[in-house]
Design a protein around this nucleic acid. Structure first.
Lengths: 212, 212
DNA sequence: CAGATGTCTAATGTCGACATTAGACATCAA
DNA sequence: TTGATGTCTAATGTCGACATTAGACATCTG
């Protein structure tokens, strides 16, 4: 087991993730350096380092001379973020659709079934986990570092900010139909169709979250 | 005249941009905090702040406990970066292609001619400037904040890192043909064509730079 | 000789204190 | 009333010093 020795900065980042995931922090809240430093028993320096990373990943809005805030995203901004995610993933998958083995396609279909089953049991957390694995596998063939950097950042941001809604968006039949549609498009190797289906998937996910 | 009072951090960022644009800094060089602090007569704190911003924009690679370095991009990474830029811009323009007025299309054609003329005179700097205006106008109709954030970052990164090559890539006839092709695709309102042409434009630009 | 280990150094990581400033509030004049 | 101005405070911006560590080099060991 790899003992990873984390720097204070990384601990702060994780701490803020936890605060967000447990709803102890919500949109509009300010992250005061002194307060965080006091809570964690460290100085402000590593807090500031952590803020920069959170800003980079879109999980914190920075206002010069004022402070760092959890972003308040408008419905349009939510849809925009998901749309952008879809554009990037759509391209990534389209470009590599002929690299998927039969086993990998099976795996995708398997994960789709898992999502359906978990959705039936209302096990939202596992729905999200299987969904994450599904999209990770989909995009895994692409090795465009720049593109992956952006999709990763965006995934993290959307995951952390909207985790609480993600599992409940779709019923079992819909989550199944949606992901089967993606798998079918990949199997078809119809480049235009792949991009269209994946983009649509994200736009609709974003739209659903935006109206909550 | 607006006197903008810049924070030290911003001055550091600008300073590093200058070092990069004037080739005083090149791929692989390390940005030592103490040295920069000494050169600018300030402490390391604002230097560190500036590093975070440069990292965010992809202009600096960060290695924990080691330091900050000007990135060394492989040919593939260069092409990847330009490709990603093309994917984002292609989508942005495609989505808004029916919002361009006749005057704006004229402006695009006008800028294309300017690029040709400047290229004839080997005025590389002005070719780049007109090119920047061309792409800014193209993308200006889109208001997807998330997408614009990424395209802006990527534009800045590619501009700063490859400024020295940009103007010399294409001869006058080629730069004209390429950009006219983009304008024509926008006028056609053929969504698939627009994305294809814009992506292709960036992929080829990246490929040319990659082999230098 | 090759690999493991020890040591050193220069760089980043962290600290606590002070400087500066955005925003809130009170005050005043038209 | 209302807009301009003064003042205050709590937050970020910056500082210089110390702690820690990655990487280079020397040393030991088989």
């Amino acid at each position: 087991m790899p003992i990873v020795k984390k720097t204070y900065k990384d601990q702060v980042v994780d701490y803020v993730y936890q605060l967000l995931l447990t709803n102890e922090l919500g949109p509009g809240d300010q992250l005061k350096e002194s307060l965080l430093a006091e809570q964690m028993g460290i100085s402000r320096a590593p807090i500031r380092e952590a803020m920069k990373e959170l800003i980079m990943n879109g999980l914190v809005d920075y206002r010069p001379q004022v402070g760092n805030f959890i972003p308040v995203l408008s419905p349009k901004q939510i849809v925009d973020s998901y749309t952008t995610r879809g554009v990037l993933e759509g391209y990534a998958v389209m470009e590599t659709c002929d690299q998927f083995s039969a086993e990998e396609v099976d795996k995708l279909e398997n994960l789709t079934e898992q999502m359906e089953n978990y959705a039936h049991k209302k096990n939202h957390k596992m729905v999200i986990e299987a969904g994450g694995e599904f999209h990770d596998l989909l995009i895994s063939k692409n090795n465009n570092v720049q593109l992956l950097e952006y999709t990763d950042r965006l995934s993290l941001k959307l995951h952390i900010l909207f985790f609480k809604y993600l599992g409940k968006l779709y019923g079992p039949s819909e989550v199944g139909r949606r992901h089967r549609e993606i798998v079918e498009s990949v199997k078809s190797k119809d480049l235009g169709l792949i991009e269209k289906v994946i983009r649509q998937h994200y736009v609709e996910t974003g739209s659903k979250i935006a109206i909550l």
